[in-house]
Design a protein around this nucleic acid. Structure first.
Lengths: 359, 359
DNA sequence: AGATTTCTGAGGTACGCACCTCAAAAACTC
DNA sequence: GAGTTTTTGAGGTGCGTACCTCAGAAATCT
């Protein structure tokens, strides 16, 4: 049997009340007694039963997930993943509320955070660009005992407890290597397309991509980043314009989750299937593009893992227990058509291939 | 507040005892009353508090993990991952015992399983080739109420509850595409190396690899599989022998987790760095080989995920609760040097790259 | 209607822990 | 050594559920 608090009390020769005081760091225990209890704890290998503890505390976790209100398939995927993770987390008494804040207004975000703190929320997962206002708001949250994790895009200069997401420089490097290897070091030009270069993740990816191409695939020339700024027309025109000046265009790197108009533009230019296209993030659109080979490879992060990890880390921080680093490391996934994960709720997805002969 | 059993009782106009009988499927309740209670449950949205339920049951999960006693870095990694997952699972009152069984003796395995059943184990994760004996043993376990999952290598014709692992045909296809693309469709020969072709996973990978290369990279010729049978010498000789007859050797596909002797043989043949090497599984050895570019790409499954997933699925099956398909799908990971995950406990691993300017 | 069977309700104990109170013991102070 | 402060012990209640008993009500049968 697993040792309980009573076993500690017996082993340490003190009463249950004292053990309780030590365990929950309540005052009124002599240092010597504390030592005796902690010794007993390690001696008998006691591990607190968190389920029972939380039951007794009747603690529940109220968590807020803050995402910008930008229209984006990737954000929609993240929100959906968080919703699913939240549904699975009700059994561990976790409630999650997702809030979209105005992307352009740092004051609005700060107001939302202040409001959450007032409401007595216990944890916050946030995806937002780092501003001085946000730094202060996060510090205030932490001071108030609220756990904070940065999601997708890190906030390294704030007091956030943890970052849940991938190393975007490495993701860019990965995209760069794939591009270089798929082109086998032959010379040519690479077009880079982004929604905008304002976000930290896009910048870091571009940096990683450039570094690798420059160092290992010197025959490739990486062109200036085209910014779509949310407008299909701007992107379309820019692609046509640039392709005129890039006679040996052999690859396209899409820093964000891809733009529907890009496929059409490539088809019009007669480039479809003749250039290597590498993008980021798994969305309904990039998934389809990968399936019909409009995109050759995706460098992604698993949004399901992202959401579940954020909730797990927040719960751990709230409970002040250590986190399992290995489990919380979000990997950089490379997805080709061949290793495209099946979507669980897609009735059209083919049955698992399996052979019934052979041991 | 979350509704409790008492709320159900009030809502359904019955007593707590009756609610309890319905919830735990105990006899002695009229169909009409059962209906009234289940109606009330959905009406108020009751979700059973599993933590409290397990506490009251004072249930703990005793789980056995069965692995063949073959010497292999991959198996060692799996065992280690299971050990780590077990350590993290003590808080959810889960005990895991890993047992290595004689790989060559199906009767010994059956005996171990029968013994476990007698000991009153509640769940089993097993990695073994499918034999009639094993089929029967698994059926008996299931009949006795023991949950069973197949690990790494599926047992599709048994009554196992679930398979925790990747689709190995797809993994082979993925390796095939990487090989083809890295070689850019230029003609050449591919050597295939395996420990043995007896295990289902190796066979399936080879099948997927062949299918893709044949269909999409017709210029490549895939040579006959070399089987090492655990002997570095056999492998070494076979590689030398075959490379004499393959003047245009451009790639090597390692079906298993790679063989230390292979790197040396390639160096001796002057092929190091001149052929594309693609392997499977992340082990200390393949990791190093990837870092120093002896191997170009690895197609892997995350053993940490594998182990945690196995434990989660087993617990879910024991509790008879549905599993979160999305979370339990083990992805086929493609690992290049650039997206090599950091090892958490490696003090020598470089700090996370991050820039402190830029929002 | 009476006997019999089947349901149902009221209540208790337990799981492992948190958190509370009150009194007694021990350790200090002067 | 009397008074004061600090530390400790004993005990209780509750968290949400499981599981048990026993008595009484309701339904069914004869």
């Amino acid at each position: 049997m697993r040792p309980t608090v009573n076993d500690i009390a017996r082993e340490a020769g003190v009463s249950l009340a004292t053990v309780d005081r030590v365990l929950n760091e309540r005052p009124g225990v002599r240092a010597k007694t504390v030592q005796a209890v902690t010794d007993a704890i390690v001696r008998i290998g006691y591990v607190r039963d968190l389920a029972a503890a939380n039951l007794a505390r009747s603690r529940s976790y109220r968590i807020a997930c803050l995402l910008p209100d930008t229209q984006s398939q990737f954000l929609a995927t993240v929100e959906q993943a968080m919703h699913d993770a939240a549904a699975a987390a009700v059994v561990s008494r976790t409630e999650v509320e997702t809030i979209r804040f105005p992307a352009e207004d740092p004051h609005a975000l700060v107001a939302v955070l202040a409001d959450l703190q007032a409401q007595g929320i216990s944890g916050v997962a946030i995806m937002a660009p780092e501003t001085p206002h946000l730094r202060d708001a996060i510090r205030d949250l932490r001071r108030a005992g609220v756990a904070v994790v940065a999601l997708v895009s890190d906030l390294p200069n704030t007091e956030r407890d943890h970052f849940v997401g991938i190393d975007n420089v490495a993701a860019g490097r990965t995209a760069g290597v794939l591009m270089g290897r798929f082109l086998s070091g032959n010379p040519g030009q690479i077009m880079v397309v982004a929604q905008s270069l304002l976000s930290r993740d896009a910048l870091e990816r571009r940096r990683g991509f450039d570094a690798v191409v420059q160092a290992e695939f010197a025959a490739l020339e990486v062109l200036q980043t085209l910014e779509a700024h949310g407008s299909p027309d701007i992107l379309r025109r820019a692609v046509f314009e640039m392709s005129r000046h890039a006679p040996r265009l052999r690859g396209i790197y899409v820093l964000g989750s891809g733009h529907r108009v890009l496929g059409a533009a490539l088809a019009d230019l007669g480039l479809a299937g003749r250039v290597v296209v590498i993008g980021h993030e798994m969305t309904p659109h990039t998934r389809t593009a990968l399936q019909n080979s409009t995109i050759d490879a995706l460098v992604t992060q698993n949004t399901g893992h992202l959401a579940r990890s954020a909730l797990r880390v927040l719960r751990a921080k709230i409970d002040r227990v250590p986190i399992d680093e290995g489990q919380e490391q979000i990997r950089i996934d490379i997805v080709l058509r061949e290793n495209l994960p099946q979507v669980a709720d897609d009735p059209a997805s083919p049955a698992r291939v399996r052979s019934d002969q052979a041991a």
